[in-house]
Structures are given as C-alpha cells and as structure tokens.
Amino acid sequence: MPMSYYLILSAAMFAIGVLGVILRRNPLVVFMSLELMFNAANLLFVAFSAYHQILDGDLFVFFVMTTAAAEVAVGLALMVAIFRAKHTIDLDEMNMLKG
C-alpha cells in the first residue's frame, strides 16, 4: 500500500480529533478525541517504521500508549473530583480557579 494512504488517514483522524476537542463540551468526549489524536500519531509511527524497516517507531508507540494510559487515569480521576465539587462536568461550567 502506498505511504500516502496512511498519511491521509492519519491526517484525517488527527483533524477530526482536533475538531472534537474544539467543539465538544463533554470532557469525556474531549478525552476520547485526544485518544483519537494519539492514535493518529501512532499510526504514522508504525507506518514510517515499516517504511524504513526499523523498529524504533514501533517502540515509540508503546511509550505513547503507556503515557496515554497514565493521562487517562489521572484525567478521569480529576473529572470525578470535579464532579463531586460542582455536580456537573460541563466544560463551560469550569470557569473558576477556586472550586
């Protein structure tokens, strides 16, 4: 398969992820859009790794995955804490520095 297939797919995925982060106000959906962007980057890592026939890109995907897992765990815990304090998780309601 030509390289441009993966480039186009990854660019489209990343753009859709950016759109989700900009437009949605449900923080859970924003997090999922972030995962989508991580995934777009991962796809390019693996594609270029296969393109150059070296494994370093593949290994970077593992580090991205673990970092994404850590980010999701902390982010969701933050969301639970915010929900306890404000009883909503609408992003537009989070406009005060003091809880």
């Binding site: 797919l9 489209a12 995925m13 859709i16 992820g17 759109l19 989700g20 437009l23 949605r24 959906v29 999922m32 859009s33 989508l36």
Partner: peptide, 10 residues
C-alpha cells in the same frame, strides 16, 4: 471504518 467511526465519535 476509521474515518466514519472517528466522525461518529464527535
């Protein structure tokens, strides 16, 4: 599938 599910997500 990748594109449609991504659009469906947002």
């Amino acid at each position: 599938t990748v594109i449609v599910s991504a659009i469906g997500l947002i």
